[in-house]
């Protein structure tokens, strides 16, 4: 996949990723956000909100995820000048999201114990939440990566670009996470999936 860096005519250079999403050098936009550029913020949100959403969805009830995504970006915006290395933005905002989820769980544990997802009468919805619950039981690395791929529709390369993980690590996380998920869901092909990159 083509790496995209720098500016052309004052605008971040853009290329098209394998899933058809525009890819922008995040460091350029992160610096611009720190300088108060609203358009750059919209691009940063577009680039990273799916990753943040996936991290939160793996940890907190769905009904609160959207609000927490907003919280995470507000926190990131207020603290963005503390970030000395714009290329580390992905790992940085991912940490903010994980910490925000931890804080949320602490607070809700101290308040009234609310039920988690309520599937209702829709059988597809019930199955969706059943699968989500199984993914939430996976180790962090597999859980986050699988949710970015299966829920948010990010490609493996996009996940690597956003999280700062090596593409090889993402591929292994996807493969092993999917293998564990198949086992949990009781799929017959759980043991016989291809292992092309281990």
């Amino acid at each position: 996949m083509e790496q995209v860096l720098g500016l052309a005519d004052g605008e971040p250079v853009v290329a098209i990723g394998v899933f058809g999403r525009p890819q922008v050098d995040p460091a350029v936009d992160v610096r611009a956000v720190a300088g108060g550029d609203g358009q750059a913020f919209a691009r940063v949100y577009e680039s990273y909100s799916r990753m943040v959403h996936a991290i939160l969805l793996g940890r907190v009830p769905r009904r609160d995820v959207d609000d927490l995504v907003q919280d995470v970006f507000l926190t990131a915006y207020t603290r963005i000048r503390e970030l000395r290395e714009p290329k580390a933005f992905g790992g940085w905002i991912a940490t903010i999201a994980r910490n925000r989820a931890t804080d949320y769980l602490r607070q809700t544990r101290e308040q009234v114990e609310l039920p988690d997802e309520l599937p209702g009468g829709d059988s597809i919805e019930a199955e969706t939440f059943a699968v989500l619950q199984e993914i939430r039981k996976l180790p962090d690395a597999y859980r986050d990566t699988l949710l970015m791929r299966l829920v948010e529709g990010m490609s493996g390369q996009e996940i690597a670009d956003r999280t700062g993980l090596a593409p090889g690590s993402v591929r292994v996380n996807l493969h092993r996470g999917m293998k564990l998920l198949r086992e949990k869901l009781g799929r017959p092909d759980a043991i016989h999936t291809g292992m092309t990159h281990e």
Partner: peptide
Amino acid sequence: LERLLGRLRNTAPAPSFDELSRGA
């Protein structure tokens, strides 16, 4: 799984930058 879980995808629009600045 993509079909099932894609229902949960993030669809919230970016917050208004002005509101964000005020919030900050």
